[in-house]
Design a protein around this nucleic acid. Sequence first.
RNA 1: GCGGGUGUGGCGGAAUUGGCAGACGCACUAGCCUUAGGAGCUAGCGCUUACGCGUGCAGGUUCAAGUCCUGUCACCCGCACCA
Length: 731
Amino acid sequence: MLYPMGWDAFGLPTENFAIKNHIHPSIVTENNIANFKRQLKSLGFSFDWSREINTTDPSYYKWTQWIFLQLFKEGLAYKKEMSVNWCTSCKCVLANEEVVNGVCERCGSEVVQKEKSQWMLKITEYAEKLLEGLEGVDFIERVKTQQRNWIGRSYGTQVTFNTTLGDSFEIFTTRADTLFGATYMVMSPEHPLLAKWKDNIKNYAEVEAYQEQSAKKSDFERTELAKDKTGVKLDGVMAINPVNEKQIPIFISDYVLISYGTGAIMAVPAHDTRDWEFAKKFDLPIIEVVKGGEDVQKEAFTECATGVLVNSDFLDGLSVEDAKTAIQKWLADKGIGSVKTNFKLRDWVFSRQRYWGEPIPMVYCEKCGWVPLPESELPLVLPNVESYEPTDNGESPLAKMTDWVNTTCPHCGAPAKRETDTMPQWAGSSWYFLRYCDPHNDKEFASKEALEYWCPVDWYNGGMEHTTLHLLYSRFWHKFLYDITAVPNAEPYAKRTSHGMILGENGEKMSKSRGNVVNPDEIINDYGADTMRVYEMFIGDFEKAAPWSQSSIKGSKRFLDKVWALGVIMTDESGYRKELEAEFHRTIKKVTEDIESLKMNTAIAALMALMNSIQATGKITKDEYKTFITLLNPFAPHITEEIWEMCGFEGMLNQTKWPEFDEAKCVDATVEIVVQINGKIRARLNVAADISSADAISLAKEQEAVKAEITNKNIIKELYVPKKLVNIVVK
RNA sequence: GCGGGUGUGGCGGAAUUGGCAGACGCACUAGCCUUAGGAGCUAGCGCUUACGCGUGCAGGUUCAAGUCCUGUCACCCGCACCA
């Protein structure tokens, strides 16, 4: 079993903290690691500290940089001038995954679009593989669907539309069958053709004004205004619908995104809600081409499963599915349309204008362009600077370090400059699990033997918040490493689970600003590490969020106190006593199986119930106590180990064999069954567990309460469910 | 809008081939012990005076439904003008 722990400490959280408190990020990192490590140790986790890693250690990020160079060599890392998400507070670009509801995932500040030259990683090239890989892994469904949504595959058709200017442009649609219903076209305001058409568009000033207006909108504003459609009709150019040669107007509108598909669409107002709204606003024709809905003048008909094509010439009478196939063939034959798969996933913006990150090992040479650093020069160590604050001009703080920036081109030897942006916080965590296999290797990121021995990660538990960030990124890197045969498996994690968060006492997420943070140090100080562990496991379902309760934790403390107190009533007897034998076997079974399925809460509940039974007898035998504390050991390792030693049991408890149960002994010799008349409980009786059906029923009928219910009535049915109940149906 | 999930006491939560709803714990109540009690022990604790009624709501299947079926409401999470 490999159960490691390490520190992923590059990135904005550390750096923002450093800036706020005027402590250098490297010192912050060092202090926090020491503190976290102390806390983890105080809880008694059994991590293998000999494999501890730290993503900010040059001996670690040497290999993060190495992987970046491999990505560059394979053409998967490229620098591009483009519109990127810019956090106004962090003064830094963000990946799409880091923008949540139009604000920065980290600090909650507004995100705007900015033209910048950025390093990008072609995660889109792996979209299909990232989807396919989900089929073969044991991830909880939530995680799988969230990743599928994020990657957002859709199958459709790319169609070429000619224009009255003699040129053409392409659109993407999932509903090629509705082509006859296309009554206008919409382009994104950022569409490159607009500039080309400048001289032909009579209202170009209006177009430019609209472009400017939408550029100013933040993502947040764009979604805010989602309902009210705006746009400008291009005056001087029309599109030609290829199926009927009709000329239809072209609009620009910001409800069409430049980043998805081709940045242009055909609008079918009769069968798309957004197009319908737009058509209504601009008074455009709405032509029904799929029959089956209500009046398309009043509402768009978007359900397509049952519809039949109309007003569509050679498609008339076909089902939507058949029409799709037919039109795709027609378009393909004419050479103006092809089947196409689109993804919502965007390439990963990989550079940050910040200090606290891995330097990107690239050099810019006037003659040679971007040149990778030779692998022999890795690690490219992050220089120790005094001033690490982000700059207002959008440059990395490293840019001011001319000594470091100015270098020579590794290719031609001419003077050149280093890349001053750094990698995002997700870089180091995209492959750390591989380093755990071989953490001290200085020849390669991990040896083939070590990787083959340990990989893939058998079981990865983590929070849901990383599903479209770290989990997606690390699967991407891993798949890349697999493709260059650097790792032996296509997927990094065989099984992925996710725990619920412990919320503050008020049911909200714990945070300093809400003032509902519980400090584990205080809990451990007041109640002990074992109480803390037992309570956290007992609090509820592993996967669900649950509020912390300062009074409930006392229950766990009392339980452990009682377990301790059992030592006082321990006898010299061995084995399980007859009256408790079945419950012991049942509890061993329950705890064993519950731990396997992460039902820690019910495992602990079962131990509490067993303890109540033991207490009721006033004593406990040696073997009973042994079994009990062994079952409790994973939850409360300290107190149980202590008890083990004090009782003089041999060796270490944590190295003792796990108790075994006998299925046959899990059942008591006698059981209580209930007697129901017409499903209502009328009596209870104790019977031998193996009583026959006939005996149970006749015994039931002898009960006074039952007799009263069945005399002078017709018995319609009698049944006995073994060890549970007798039900007599009367009329 | 699309996708995923959840609705059970005052609270956290148990309960799967359909078979005693509320395990276990907290809080609460009464009593004991105590100079004292954020300690411990004992008992009680879904609602209802009772007949009975109770797992978001309305139906259905069944001898029997928290569990299966149909419809519906509410809340939470993710994505979202994705063509």
